[in-house]
């Protein structure tokens, strides 16, 4: 808490994994797979996974923030250090994003087919869409880290914004 450390985000990621595992391993919270029944989650399972998701996102962005912004800010301007590697990574990720976008559209066309009863392959659709979002996030992160000039301000406590 003293600075933008990595201790709490790491702990959040571990705790998130533990909550996911609890949701999966505990019989009472397990996804219901009764014969003939539609699988669904119990309320306890949903609660555990909701907290696990928040902690995962929080832990992930916390570690990323430490990498991108550092643990302590120092006022002034800090020049980025662009190199070939981030450029190559950006191009590769962009190509991957284009490929996944095409594949995502393909899953939508597949789901819009009356011959298969408008079947939605939800895990596949969401997996591809989720991967696209992660790649976009990575692209912005790479751009921020290696191509944006960082500036740290020391603003007066009594600013006149918004009034």
């Amino acid at each position: 808490m003293y600075r933008n450390d990595t201790v709490v985000p790491y702990f959040a990621l571990v705790f998130s994994a533990a909550l996911f595992l609890t949701a999966y391993l505990n019989d009472r919270f397990r996804v219901v797979h009764e014969a003939g029944a539609v699988p669904h989650l119990t309320v306890g399972n949903i609660g555990l996974m909701a907290f696990a998701l928040v902690l995962f996102v929080y832990g992930f962005i916390g570690l990323l923030s430490n990498w991108l912004e550092g643990s302590e800010l120092r006022p002034g301007r800090h020049e980025p250090e662009p190199s070939s590697l981030p450029m190559v990574a950006g191009v590769v990720l962009s190509l991957l994003l284009v490929m996944l976008s095409g594949f995502f559209v393909r899953t939508l066309i597949f789901a819009n087919n009356p011959e298969i009863g408008y079947y939605n392959a939800t895990t596949l659709q969401a997996g591809v869409f989720g991967a696209m979002m992660f790649i976009l996030a990575l692209l912005i992160a790479i751009y921020k880290k290696f191509f944006i000039e960082e500036e740290v301000l020391a603003e007066d406590e009594k600013g006149d914004f918004p009034w």
Binding site: V31, M49, L53, V57, I61, T122, A126, A137, I140
Partner: peptide, 18 residues
């Protein structure tokens, strides 16, 4: 922007899988 994309990515994946 990064946080929003990570949030949407992770939540959508879970929403589709469960």
């Amino acid at each position: 922007g990064i946080l929003f994309l990570v949030y949407i990515g992770a939540t959508t994946f879970i929403a589709g899988a469960f």
